[in-house]
Amino acid sequence: MNILVLGGTRFFGRKLVENLLEEQHDVTIVTRGMSENPFGKNVTHIKVDRKDVASFKEALANKQFDVVYDNICYSPNEAKQLCEIFNGSIKKLVFTSTLSTYEANGTAHAEEDFNPYDYEICMGDTQEFTYGEGKRLAEAVFYKEAKFPVVAVRFPIVMGEDDYTRRLHFHVERILNDEPIGFANMDAEMSFIQATEAAKFLAWVGMNDVEGPINATANGIISLRDLISLIEDKTNKRAKIALLGTDEIRSPYAIPTSWYMKNDKATSLGFTFSNLQDWLPGLVEAISKVSVK
């Protein structure tokens, strides 16, 4: 297939491109040129900033793709722009969405808990919305205005050794350095997915007959208390826990109540997810080894 990837040079986006190349697809990546192209001549590389609307449209005008992966759309304006460029010229869009489309209310969320087809659209740029609201509005624009099939893949927090957000690293490093971590609710439970599995899932939905919103998460959940206990076990250090505290010490996982999702839809369509407890201890151990100062 002829495939375009927006956001394909780091973390799970990079792993997605690697998967697509292994399957011998023709891959084009779009970047601002700020990051190194790790694939060399194995991909077609278009350098353009999507926020430069005119240049972005010019760079992609009249190009035909079987599948477009958009890992870096965060606003309704960006979603509308993509529809205007590609309506009539692509066969499918895979949009990377998020657990943040759902309210953190202590329940296990299924896809129907947020319906983008009926969501009222308010146009605007990324800085005008929270992360979750920007993704909700982007989904709404795609499902109302796209003239091509759309899959909105809703991921929880993606984990990996090469995670540039370093959210899990934050906890490991602060425990190793005897620095406090602030939480709102240690008993809150979360779901996660590993970067390699996120990339595998994106490739899978692109190549299969899948449409609409779809959750993608590893099987199983873990409380923040148990996550900290796991890190303590792997680092042989005791965590210093504070009640929220300043922005500097506040955990990126400092949620007030449990926040996780079901993966029943994807499982019923044939994707087999890993079990969180099978890989999380190894990941924590690997991060702890490289984090020791």
Rank of each mutant, 00 (worst) to 15 (best):
T96I: 13
T98D: 10
A54D: 14
K41T: 03
F148D: 13
F114L: 10
S97F: 03
H109E: 03
I121L: 04
D66F: 00
N71T: 14
Y119A: 08
Y131L: 14
K135W: 05
Q127A: 07
E103W: 04
R136L: 03
F65R: 02
F114M: 12
F56G: 09
N87W: 01
F114N: 12
S100V: 08
I85E: 00
A138E: 04
Y117P: 00
N71P: 12
A59L: 06
E84N: 13
V141D: 03
G106I: 11
Q81S: 04
V151P: 08
A108L: 06
K92A: 02
K57F: 07
C83L: 01
A104Q: 13
Q127I: 04
A104D: 14
F129I: 10
E145F: 15
D52V: 05
Y102T: 07
N71G: 14
T130C: 04
E128I: 01
N71Y: 13
K51F: 05
A146T: 13
I85N: 00
E112Q: 15
Y131K: 14
Q81N: 08
C83P: 02
D125T: 10
F86S: 05
S89V: 12
L93R: 02
K51E: 13
Y131H: 15
T101K: 09
Q127C: 03
E133A: 06
V48E: 06
E128Y: 02
V53P: 09
K57L: 01
N71Q: 15
A152Y: 05
N87M: 08
